[in-house]
């Protein structure tokens, strides 16, 4: 079986190497991507979407399908970890508990956490909201927002975090973020444009088509942010407690 795997891998590698010969050279100024696509994006990006950050425009508008399925991949990761690790209460009793001894020791970490966490959350929302102007966007902001909850779970304990943010709510957010992304695309479809053609939002939001694309980018960034932060929390809940949801690290 192992030998078969090796053979298949070797064949795949050979095919890829053969295909790589035909790729244009790195940073070749005469390759199709450099002669047509990049200049077009750079010249028309701001005019079409009123968004100065070209990276955001390419990520969330020109190749929005790709980003949507990236969000779906993250969503699938959370589901798989949930399926593999999460235990039902009946299975739980058979397991040996490993409870860390921590009562009365967390004073310093709690003091730092209560000051840092709110600032961190507003910073995360700023990163999501200002993806149009500075580096940032849904993925980065979502990671920081999720990390703030992980800090809460580390400095207090996992049970405290779960009491504030129930597992059901987290899973609702996991699905809701992807739904928001796809829903924006579906609304555009319903308005008679392409799927994820944000200009279709112009009639609903009451703005020009260019501004509608800018707002559409913001909406899908928010969707990605919700997905990423809730997926991080879901992963942490399951991984830190081994699926029991009682004691974290």
């Amino acid at each position: 079986m192992k030998r078969l795997t090796l053979v298949i891998l070797a064949i795949c590698a050979l095919i890829m190497l053969a295909a790589a010969v035909d790729l244009p050279n790195w940073a070749d100024p005469s390759s199709p991507a450099s002669t047509h696509l990049s200049p077009d994006f750079l010249e028309q990006g701001y005019g079409e979407t009123a968004t100065p950050n070209i990276v955001t425009v390419v990520l969330a508008d020109y190749r929005s399908y790709d980003t949507m399925f990236e969000a779906v991949v993250v969503f699938a990761a959370a589901l798989i970890v949930l399926v593999v690790l999460r235990r039902t209460p009946r299975q739980r009793s058979k397991m040996v508990q490993h409870r860390p001894v921590r009562e009365g020791r967390d004073t310093v970490l709690r003091g730092a956490a209560q000051l840092i966490i709110p600032v961190m959350q507003i910073f995360a929302l700023y990163v999501v909201g200002h993806g149009h102007y500075s580096p940032g966007g849904g993925f980065q902001g979502g990671v920081i927002f999720g990390a703030s909850f992980i800090l809460l779970a580390l400095c207090y304990n996992l049970q405290f975090t779960i009491d504030r943010f129930k597992e059901q709510a987290v899973l609702f957010c996991v699905a809701g973020g992807v739904l928001l992304y796809a829903g924006v695309g579906a609304i555009c479809l319903a308005m008679g444009w392409n799927f994820l053609g944000y200009a279709g939002l112009a009639g609903i939001l009451g703005v020009s088509e260019v501004m509608a694309r800018s707002h559409g980018i913001l909406l899908v960034e928010v969707g990605v942010g919700i997905t990423v932060f809730s997926v991080m929390m879901s992963l942490y809940y399951d991984l830190a407690s081994g699926g029991d949801l009682d004691e974290g690290l």
Binding site: F123, V127, S134, P135, G136, I144, A147, I150, L151, L154
Partner: peptide
């Protein structure tokens, strides 16, 4: 500065974790 701030926050959390 945004990158630096995000890096500082994540570095702190990584160390604690």
């Amino acid at each position: 500065i945004d990158i630096a701030l995000a890096y500082a926050l994540l570095n702190f959390i990584t160390t604690i974790a």
